[in-house]
Design a protein around this nucleic acid. Structure first.
Length: 431
RNA sequence: UCCUCGGUAGCUCAAUUGGCAGAGCGCUCGGCUGUUAACCGAAUGGUUGUAGGUUCGAGUCCUACCCGGGGAGCCA
């Protein structure tokens, strides 16, 4: 007898099999009981009638939601069952019967309550499909970079200096001196790119911003890439290919999950047809003003502005050539227009915000020193980074993509907290 | 940090002008042989976020604080 997972069930119709999982729900009608069994790969309906197996009927009747069970039975096609297939249960081994009612109900509950019970919430409803899509996104990122000849590497989480200033860093005690949780792996990736050529990493980064929005986490996972000899244009091409690859992979691997989430895959696919539109910061300002936004030159885009840009193009859109004053020190200024940087943000459609921030990096010592001074950053802390410009510096570019935002967009879910197993937010550190 | 809405049973919410604190769901019990968040019946369930104040009387009005939702700013 074969032990199978629920996602394999269709291939075992007519066969006797074993399933290991949890009771997702129980419905009964007199002398017949329907057990919805879940196992992480899906949910299948089991059926038990009193007349066939009286003692089994008693066992099943006593089970409550989330009881862990091993069930043996025969799979049969049945249009009356959700999914068109059900398990005629012949034997149940109860691993554990919950001592208390399962707190997560199948009806609507408030976000605060659900987040307090996140460790249990993830078992239910759309949480499982979302987390399975998350798995595909991570794998797609790794496959893409591997296929493109990139080397996976790592950046430290504990750092002594910040990338973009010190206001948004989590501080930790490091043997009596101050250390910070990394808000980006970028600077270290630049060093690694000078060693290996094309590198990427996927890792957690930390921002101590007090943002309380549907797009922010204080700890989130970012995939960052850094490529030697890539210019700004190469960089954007790499980014759009990555995004398209991720979406195509999810559509291919997680059709069922997207269907569960009622996400229109044709629409998604349309959104990632290449190339993505590119507009300059100046053009974006014009578009936004024409749409009635009050925005001054030099302002960054807020959520409403990003939503407008998303609506305008109905695709991810690159906004490039930002004023240098509003961007960090490591971005290379455009040779033809030094007040602008060779940087681009990729704005997601449907109001999901900025997916990617990327730029060509400063590659000469003089320019880098000047920009550190301009941003009033201490050179000493960046000596090792300056070294990269002293020893065989080359043009290079890189970017970082927020994984959870990408997942939220692909899934079409309203809030980023569901796009990560355990969200860390400004007022949430538990569970 | 700011704006805004909210906090009443385990959950989701009612409660008229300040006048007996209620319903649905869940759990428990009973009924029902094809349920689809099953349904029907019964029972259970309360320090109304905390502290103070006004009042004959406060879930309701006032003050402070705590907690949560949504948003802004900042960001990916």
């Amino acid at each position: 007898m074969t032990t199978i997972t629920i996602e394999e069930a269709a291939r075992f119709i007519g066969k006797e099999i074993i399933l290991r999982g949890w009771v997702y729900n129980k419905r009964s009608s007199g002398k017949i009981i329907f057990l919805q069994i879940r196992d992480g790969t899906g949910v299948v309906q089991g059926v038990i009638t009193q007349s066939d197996t009286p003692s089994l009927f008693v066992t099943a009747n006593n089970l409550s939601r989330e009881a862990s069970v091993v069930v043996k039975g025969t799979l049969q096609a049945d249009n009356r069952a959700p999914g068109g297939c059900e398990l005629k249960i012949e034997q149940i081994q109860v691993i554990q019967q919950p001592s208390e009612p399962f707190p997560i109900e199948l009806k609507r509950q408030s976000p605060g309550f659900l987040m307090d019970h996140r460790h249990l919430w993830i078992r239910t409803g759309r949480q499982v499909p979302i987390l399975r899509i998350r798995d595909s996104v991570f794998r797609a990122v790794r496959d893409f970079f591997h296929e493109q000849g990139f080397i996976a590497t790592e950046a430290p989480i504990l750092t002594g200096a910040s990338v973009e200033g010190t206001t948004t860093l989590f501080e930790v005690d490091y043997y009596g001196t101050r250390a910070y949780l990394a808000q980006s792996g970028q600077l270290y990736l630049e060093a690694t790119a000078m060693a290996l050529g094309k590198v990427y990493w996927i890792g957690p980064v930390f921002r101590a911003e007090k943002s309380k929005t549907r797009k922010h986490l204080t700890e989130f996972w970012m995939a960052e890439a850094e490529t030697a000899f890539y210019d700004h244009g190469d960089n954007m091409r790499l980014q759009e290919e990555l995004v398209a690859y991720i979406v195509e992979t999810v559509i291919e691997e997680r059709k069922q999950e997207l269907d569960y989430l009622k996400r229109d895959t044709a629409f998604l696919r349309e959104q990632v047809s290449l190339p993505f539109p590119r507009i300059t910061y100046d053009q974006a300002i014009t578009i936004l003003r024409d749409s009635g936004h009050k925005i001054s030159f030099g302002d960054d885009f807020g959520a409403p502005q990003e939503a407008t840009l998303g609506d305008q193009f109905r695709k991810p859109v690159f906004v490039e050539y930002f004023p240098a004053s509003m961007k960090p020190f490591y971005m290379k200024h455009a040779p033809e227009k030094p007040s602008r940087v060779l940087a681009a943000d990729l704005i997601a459609p449907e109001g999901y915000g900025e997916l990617i921030g990327g730029s060509q990096r400063v590659d000469t010592l003089n320019e880098l020193e000047r920009q550190l001074d301009e941003k009033k950053l201490p050179r000493e802390a960046y000596e090792w980074y300056l070294d990269l410009r002293r020893y065989g510096s080359v043009p290079h570019s890189g970017f970082g993509i927020g994984i959870a935002r990408t997942i939220a967009w692909i899934c079409g879910i309203p809030h980023i907290r569901e796009a990560i197993p355990f969200a860390r937010q400004v007022n949430r550190l538990y569970p």
